[in-house]
Design a protein around this nucleic acid. Structure first.
Length: 940
RNA sequence: GGGGAUGUGGCGGAAUGGCAGACGCGCACGGUUCAGGUCCGUGUGUCCGAAAGGACGUGGGGGUUCAACUCCCCCCAUCCCCA
């Protein structure tokens, strides 16, 4: 880089420049490290320190969403949130809090594994190098972490506890009566005592040992399931739903994905659906994130309703709108529904409409043809909002239980077998898809909800029940409740709650993840390893990739990297009944596992006896009173984790809470989503990205050399050639300038474009502040002990007051604006008073800690200012000497009056009227409004 | 298709019912300098005006109010989530 910002021939020798910053910054970083400045004392254990200045002080636990250390390092967008939390925690530390602000690394995951596959380098090697690089980059920014509380999720000391939590989940079951997880041993005890009926109505003592294990395994919160999963032969692995694109292909590699039943580990997160929804109310989270979680869980209250068939069979449907039952004029089964083949009659009933038969001579032929057609479509194609609905009549009828009406049964592909019961009651008057279907097949439409005057077509809005006998006149909520009790009394149905949330697919056919602490015996049933055998370390292998197949070979079977390591898979263990041979689980955990509980490990990172000491957990994360969820006081990260990470972490935390391992029932009390720093990218005529820092603007157009280029706005990325790194900024301007710029450029929660040109503004601010203390020509201290003049003193205290308010609310941009104002007020003075400069330096320090420490030293203080008291405004100084009231006449400012702050309203009114007498021109004011301290409004 | 968010000078943004544009970038002019850069100072929403001053102005339209960027209704655009 040939930067010339500071190379000018006559830059004063003691000016604050990039060179100054690059001398000061590493020196203070070394000082902090050497003195353990940012270590936070625990109440108990090896990190306790009764001598610490904040021992026993009120605590504050602030955390960032930890990064995945990628191979390309940080760009300037990554540390935005980290600088925000660092500024906030430095401030809170100076106001007396014992602040915990740690950082770790989420280091299992695909990129390291893929790199390993390509190069043969062990993922651990790559990962450790990346983590080291991240650490250096973060250190260079002066981020004040407790250096003792850091780890990677790939450390065996860490994933030992990830495995331990898995065992807690595996060894527990969900007691629906108590709505909580309980140890599996208590379930076994209940079966043994006969206080809980054994599923299938059998007697516990008569079951074989294997049968008993099967029963128990059916209750565990972590269980092996033969369940439909997304199998991707081209990648050789099973994918989570969110890793599959809407058109049924893998997000990575774009290979076909097939729905296959495979044996996989699942976690019973659905049991926590209610609590995951209900407890959102206790959290201080952005409403949009809460809403996304509610939608993801998708709780809906409704009813199961039985529609009797002509024989003994009943078609079960689930509906969220039992209040519309009187409008159910037909039924639709999924083409794959089990009942379809049994209800189809030999011949079409008399008077069947032509449109219903699909042109086939018999119901059987029609159904067979339609089934074949539906099977060829993907789920996505089937649920897409096709304007024209397809389907065919089965020839059979059912009875609507509320009014005895005979309703025809169709099959149609807009009903999915895997969702709900695979059958619906169709209410065409109030459901769009049912309406479209009824239009296509000429089916009757009965309105059961009042519709606005003159409305034609389907009505999905609110209203009161009509045409519904005993429900008429009720609103939707009351009508639902009334219908559910009516159904329950007569045995036609039952109220129920369903969830969109599915159980969590917890195994992956990959190498670079946590091994399961599970072995299998000859029965093929899983056995938990005892705690004493943890961690189950990830063994070295020669080939890190899962076996891949012809991308279209749906019938291929997964083969995991670990399964090829026979001497690891086959293991002789003594699990209590002598040495026997077992087979290890060869799947690994998904990347989410390590990030599901890391907030807890920071509290007690070196504890090898427990996950976290209860005293430390209660101190840092415990609830503050009845109904308080506890948890991290402030958790900052991107909104992209709104659902999955935050849902999984809440789930694990609740299991740990139920089992008594933590006292908080939520992991993150307050969530804050920082915005993203985005960037412009430029492309030449061929569409290739050109280096953004070589593009110049001329007359509103952009040029790369002589070639005009087009501009686009988006992410920073290597391929877009628009990456700016924090190291680059630290070198050119200093880390303090970079930090101030990132915090000053806008509110923390809003995305905005990076603009390197504008960074210089932050450097000038620091330069001016520096110049207040240091004579640029001689290096001498300019600060005097003269008292401030009264006017400047009031400015100072107004700034102190404003900055405190802004800091508390994370409004760093306006806090910095106020500090600049104060600096600019002091700059023209020939003498600089300590009374103003010391508070300025202290208030700057959360944003520009290195330069603030340096100036603090120059002001004659020993050591670090990290624990100095943040300035407090004197209320007496906040009262203005006089108040200027703008005077509005009919909403336009026509004059001003200056009066003493405590002037009575009548006097203000009189003065104001006099000030605008000319404008009024003798007209009598209709109304005069005096807003104390703000303005006077006159209406004529 | 449903839900959510956002929309203010050339640019990032400030003001949450009370003087729209704090603070910064950029730009212009002046000082310093042989000069460029730096630094210091002044100015900078648009239109009319030499100025004083005036009119207009927060995506568009309507409403509530003495007073609306801010609250309510409709519309438009962009982004995000879900389908």
């Amino acid at each position: 880089m040939s930067e010339s910002e500071n190379v000018g021939a006559d830059v004063p020798p003691y000016r604050y420049t990039a060179a100054t910053a690059n001398e000061i910054e590493p020196r203070w970083q070394a000082y902090w490290a050497e003195h353990g400045t940012f270590r936070a004392p625990n109440p108990a254990g090896d990190l306790a320190d009764p001598e610490h200045p904040r021992a026993g002080a009120p605590k504050l636990h602030v955390q960032d969403m930890f990064p995945y250390p990628s191979g390309s390092g940080l760009h300037v967008g990554h540390p935005l949130g980290y600088i925000g939390t660092d500024s906030y925690t430095r401030y809170k530390r100076m106001t007396g809090f014992n602040v915990l602000h740690p950082m770790g690394f989420d280091a299992f995951g695909l990129p390291a594994e893929q790199y390993a596959v390509q190069t043969g380098t062990h993922p651990r090697t790559t990962t450790e190098a990346n983590v080291e690089r991240y650490r250096q980059q973060l250190r260079r920014l002066g981020l004040a972490y407790d250096d003792r509380r850091t780890f990677s999720t790939t450390d065996p000391d860490y994933y030992r506890w990830t495995q331990w939590i898995f065992l807690q989940v595996f060894n527990s079951w969900f007691d629906r009566a108590r709505r909580q997880a309980r140890p599996i041993d208590e379930l076994i005890a209940e079966f043994e005592a006969g206080t809980r009926p054994v599923p299938g109505g059998r007697v516990w003592s008569e079951l074989s040992a294997v049968e008993r294990r099967q029963v128990i395994d059916g209750y565990r919160l972590a269980y092996v399931s033969e369940a439909p999963v997304n199998w991707c032969p081209g990648l050789g692995t099973v994918l989570a739903n969110e890793e599959v694109t809407p058109d049924g292909r893998s997000e990575r590699g774009n290979f076909p994905v097939f729905q296959r039943s495979l044996k996989q580990w699942m976690m019973r997160i659905t049991e926590y659906g209610d609590r995951l929804v209900d407890d959102l109310d206790a959290l201080d989270w952005p409403e949009p994130v809460k809403l996304m979680q509610r939608n993801w869980i998708g709780r809906s209250r409704g009813a199961h309703v039985g529609f009797p068939l002509d024989g003994d069979d009943v078609v079960e449907v689930f509906t969220t709108r039992p209040d519309t039952l009187f409008g159910a004029t037909y039924m639709v089964l999924a083409p794959e529904h089990d009942l379809v083949s049994t209800i189809v009659p030999a011949e079409w009933p008399a008077g069947v409409k032509d449109a219903w038969t699909g042109g086939h001579d018999t119901p059987e032929a029609a159904v067979a043809a339609y089934r074949a057609q539906a099977a060829a479509k993907t789920e996505e194609e089937r649920t897409a909002d096709a304007k024209v609905k397809t389907g065919v009549f089965t020839g059979a009828y059912a009875t609507n239980p509320v009014n005895g009406a005979r309703v025809p049964i169709f099959i149609a592909d807009y009903v999915l077998a895997g969702y709900g019961t695979g059958a619906i009651m169709a209410v065409p008057g109030h459901d769009e898809r049912d309406w479209d279907f009824a239009q296509t097949f000429d089916l009757p439409i009965v309105r059961t909800i009042s519709t606005p005057e003159g409305h034609e077509g389907v009505w999905t809005g609110d209203g009161v029940a009509v045409n519904s006998e005993f429900l008429d006149g009720k609103n939707v909520v009351d009508a639902k409740a009334a219908m559910i009790s009516w159904l329950e009394e007569r045995g036609h149905g039952k109220g129920a709650t369903t969830y969109r949330l599915r159980d969590w697919l917890f195994s992956r056919q990959r190498y670079w993840g946590e091994p399961f602490p599970i072995v299998y015996d000859e029965t093929g049933l899983p056995i938990a390893l005892p705690e004493s055998m943890l961690p189950v370390e990830l063994p070295d292998v020669d080939d890190f990739s899962p076996r891949t197949f012809d991308p279209d070979d749906a019938d291929s079977e997964p083969e995991t990297p670990l399964s090829r390591k026979k001497d690891w898979v086959e293991v002789v263990l003594d699990l209590g009944d002598g040495p026997r041979t077992y087979t290890r689980e060869t799947n690994t955990m998904p990347q989410w596992a390590g990030s599901c509980w890391y907030e807890l490990r920071y509290l007690d990172p070196r504890n090898d006896k427990r996950l976290v000491d209860p005293e430390n957990e209660a101190y840092w994360m415990g609830p503050r009173g009845e109904g308080d969820p506890g948890g991290v006081d402030l958790y900052v990260g991107g909104v992209e984790h709104a659902v999955l990470h935050l849902l999984y972490a809440r789930f694990w935390h609740k299991v740990l809470f139920d089992l008594g391992h933590v006292s908080s029932f939520e992991p993150f009390r307050k969530l804050y989503n920082q915005g993203y720093i985005q960037a412009y990218a430029f492309r030449d005529a061929r569409g290739f990205a050109v280096p953004a820092d070589e593009v110049v603007e001329r007359d509103g157009k952009w040029f790369h050399g002589d070639d005009e280029v087009t501009r686009e706005y988006g992410k920073m990325g290597k391929s877009l050639k628009n990456v700016v790194t924090p190291d680059e900024m630290a070198e050119r301007y200093g880390a303090d300038t970079f930090r101030v710029y990132e915090m000053a450029m806008g509110p923390l929660d809003v995305s905005r474009p990076w603009d390197t040109r504008a960074v210089v503004g932050s450097q000038r601010f620091l330069q001016r502040a520096w110049r207040l203390v240091v004579d640029e020509e001689t290096g001498a201290n300019r600060v005097t002990d003269e008292p401030l003049d009264p006017k400047t003193r009031r400015v100072l205290h107004r700034v102190i007051d404003g900055v405190r308010g802004d800091m508390e609310e994370l409004r760093f941009n306006t806090a910095i604006a106020k500090l600049i104002e104060l600096t600019n007020t002091l700059t023209p003075r020939s003498t600089v008073s300590r009374e103003a400069v010391e508070p300025l330096v202290l208030m700057m320090s959360p944003f520009a800690p290195h330069v603030a420490e340096e100036l603090w030293g120059k002001l004659g203080h020993e050591g670090s200012l990290a624990y100095a008291d943040f300035p407090v405004a004197d209320p007496a100084q906040l009262v203005a000497e006089s108040v200027t009231y703008p005077v509005q006449v009919n909403g336009k400012v026509r004059g001003r009056v200056e009066v003493a702050p405590d002037t009575a309203e009548d006097a203000v009114r009189a003065a104001a009227l006099e000030a605008v007498a000319e404008t009024l021109g003798g007209r009598e004011p209709r109304k005069v409004i005096v807003v104390k301290g703000k303005l006077v409004s006159v209406v004529v």
